[in-house]
Simulated assay, not measured.
Amino acid sequence: MVRIGTVVMGASDVRRAAEFWKAALGLVEREPAEEDWVVLVPAGGSGAGLALGLSDTPVQEVPRVHLDLYTGKQDAEVDRLIALGAVRVNWDLYPDDPDFVVLADPNTSDYRF
């Protein structure tokens, strides 16, 4: 059996993306960040990590991969993530009564919860 160890995402600014995701998810750097690479892991030690690598690939309008984030306090968490630099995405694929919000991180990697 295999499991997800680390999700790897491209970022146009690795340090800025790392600061966002550390604050958003309570992650810490496994080793000191480099200009082009960092691996973030859960502060508590268990769970999947998030690696950020420098990328100059253009952001896809509708990314093929995103992160689903879960919380019992959606409105408060959306506000908190926006305060950290996330932005609401004007997504034309919302169902009539969505139970999620689509946000883009400061590097415009799409994710929803």
Rank of each mutant, 00 (worst) to 15 (best):
H66C: 05
V41D: 08
V14Y: 15
V41P: 05
G49R: 05
Q60L: 00
P32D: 11
A51L: 04
A18V: 01
E61A: 00
L25C: 07
W21L: 00
V2L: 12
D97E: 14
V38Q: 06
W91D: 14
L69A: 09
G72R: 12
V62Y: 09
A43Y: 04
H66D: 07
L54K: 15
L27T: 02
E61C: 00
Q74D: 03
Y94A: 03
D92S: 09
L52C: 04
A11F: 07
A18E: 13
V59P: 00
R3F: 08
E35R: 08
L54M: 11
V65E: 04
W37E: 05
V62E: 08
V39R: 12
G85S: 13
S12C: 14
L67D: 06
V101A: 07
P42W: 10
V38I: 09
R88S: 06
K73Q: 11
A11L: 11
A33D: 06
D99M: 08
G49T: 03
V7E: 10
P106N: 02
Y111G: 01
A51I: 01
D68A: 12
S12H: 15
A48R: 10
Q74P: 01
I4L: 15
L67A: 08
R80C: 14
L67Y: 05
V65S: 07
V102M: 10
A83I: 02
D75N: 12
F20Q: 11
E77M: 14
L54S: 11
M9N: 06
A17L: 15
P32F: 07
D105R: 01
Y70R: 10
L40P: 00
S12T: 14
G47K: 10
F20R: 14
S12K: 15
D99Q: 13
L50C: 02
K22D: 09
V7A: 15
L40T: 06
M9S: 13
R64F: 04
R3M: 14
D99A: 10
Q60A: 06
P63T: 04
A18Y: 09
R30N: 07
I82F: 10
F113N: 03
D96V: 07
V14W: 12
G49V: 01
E61K: 00
V78K: 15
V39L: 12
V38A: 05
G53V: 05
R15N: 15
R30G: 04
G10H: 00
R88F: 02
D36F: 05
I4N: 12
K73W: 02
V39C: 08
A86F: 13
P95K: 09
D105S: 01
R88D: 02
A23H: 02
R30Y: 09
V89Q: 11
Y111Q: 01
V8R: 13
M1N: 06
L54N: 07
P106A: 01
G44W: 07
R3P: 02
A83V: 03
E31R: 13
L81V: 07
P98M: 09
R112I: 01
I82Q: 15
E31M: 08
L54I: 06
G5T: 13
Y94N: 10
T6Y: 13
G10N: 01
E19W: 09
G45Y: 04
V7W: 07
P98A: 06
L69N: 04
L50K: 03
V101D: 04
A24W: 01
K22H: 07
V62N: 05
A18C: 09
N107H: 03
V41M: 08
G47C: 10
A11Q: 11
L54Q: 14
V65C: 04
S12I: 02
A48I: 10
T57K: 03
V38S: 06
